[in-house]
Design a protein around this nucleic acid. Structure first.
Lengths: 108, 108
DNA sequence: TCCATTGTTCGAATTATTTCGAACCTTTTA
DNA sequence: TAAAAGGTTCGAAATAATTCGAACAATGGA
């Protein structure tokens, strides 16, 4: 049976503020994070503003979010389950996620 | 007498969350912002982690902070007075600046 | 007035990030 | 068990950001 690859995630103690800020500084990535506030989604359910971008590009966006520690990416059948690492982020950078996600911003 | 150039600053309503996050996502720029929490400083009083970087580089770091709206840069004699745009940032993105500046992060 | 101080700006080189097709890997379903 | 679904990875090309020297500008003091 083996299993879909377990992708590497930084531990809570390894999270870097500037790396997290960078991950969230891209409108498309921020939009993805916002889609996850109400709970995990499979990758196919996460929509990009431009629905025509190739899957490799989408995968790369997810990688930046994952390697920064913003998002967890776990195998879920043949899909990928994405979730916000809210507890880890709140523990490490209190108030940051709330501030970022609750900010209203026309220009993203 | 004329006067030192008045550099352009975005208005409060023009501030973009992702642009602000990007500005703060660089360790050196974040460190500069942190030096301004206790009040304005002249540029010469803002220290970089590497004191040997040329002034043009330092000026560019300041430009990113200024054009994103994180910092105000005003003429002050032949110096430049830098200040955090705390009120504008708080109004636009409540809690963000506090969260970013209060976060303790070994790796910056 | 001359000149040192304190910057900004420009352009070019370097470096980092993004984008995307192609190849590949699991899992599920036919 | 073949093939489709859903994604990751790799490498190369395009784009963006950073770095830094040189040239320039305004201020303040001698």
């Amino acid at each position: 049976m083996s299993s879909s690859p377990d992708l590497p995630h930084p531990e809570r103690s390894e999270l870097s503020l500037t790396t997290v800020l960078f991950a969230l500084s891209d409108p498309e990535r921020l939009a993805i994070a916002r889609q996850l506030v109400d709970g995990p989604l499979d990758m196919a359910e996460c929509h990009l503003s431009n629905p025509n971008v190739p899957k490799s590009t989408k995968s790369h966006l997810m990688k930046v979010l994952r390697t920064s520690g913003v998002v967890r990416n776990e195998a879920n059948g043949r899909a990928r389950r994405l979730s916000l690492r809210r507890e880890d982020l709140d523990a490490r950078f209190p108030g940051l996620l709330d501030a970022v996600l609750s900010a209203e911003d026309p220009k993203a």
